[in-house]
Amino acid sequence: MLLSFDYVRARSKDDAVNLAVEAGPNGRFLAGGTDLFVRMYDRQLRLKTLIDVKEIEGIEGMECQNGQGLSIGAASSLNMLVGNETIRSRYGLLAQAAHSVGSLQVRNRASIGGNICNASPAADTAPALLVYDAEIETWGPRNTRLIPISQFFTGPGKTVLEHGEFVYKIRIPEPDTRSYGVYLKLGRTNSVDLSIVSVACLALASGEVRIALGAVAPTPIRVTEAESILLSRKDEEAIAFAASAAKETAVPISDVRAGEEYRLDMVEVLTKNAIEQALAGLAATGEV
């Protein structure tokens, strides 16, 4: 049972903003609801108004035009991402990350916008979006802005979003070269679990290797120190250095899922494996 609140449906971007401003601090935008309803069910959150954004034009669906990159409507479900051919072939890492969220039922409702707006340090799509240098297009009382994902998260459950501002689209720039991405997630069970540690690694034909971590800091993070080690060298030793640099960067906590020390060691293990797999994958696709 949920405790009472009012549900309103936003008809347009402006409508959404106005409804949110009107609702005040006890209002919240609703997309898939798979996280919001859980917190409301647990009585961690009591809201007065939920503003459903799913019917706003353009907030669901994907667009990919050559040279323009990919634009994903924020209310697109994770399974829409998983099943999208363009995403699977060109942004495979994002498909993998989306696929690792919750259960199939949850992914049919959960939206990519919700996954990042909840700003869980363990949000699975966040490390993927970080390595793709995604930008978040928002609409709010002060009109629209484009926020680099690296600046979007400010802490557990916290983002730079202002009151009344919602995520409309997620934009991923066109990759300049061929790339291969790997998302590794360590959980307790093999499905429907939160990450103990997750690592996204994107190897680009340009020689760049991008790495982001989940569940080991107050926000999902890019590990640029590790990335710069791999700019010039990609041998076994360099990979080990990079993995160790990722571990140095991580600042996990201990909780019921795992201890801090274990998480740190696993950052190193998963980072190393992710780099190796991404480089191998890139090499293999290059051969084709």
Binding site: Y7, G33, T34, V38, S103, L104, Q105, N108, R109
Partner: peptide, 12 residues
């Protein structure tokens, strides 16, 4: 599509 009906409102 399969959904958890506990995580969806009737009005939705």
């Amino acid at each position: 599509k399969a959904v958890n009906s506990c995580l969806m409102l009737a009005v939705e």
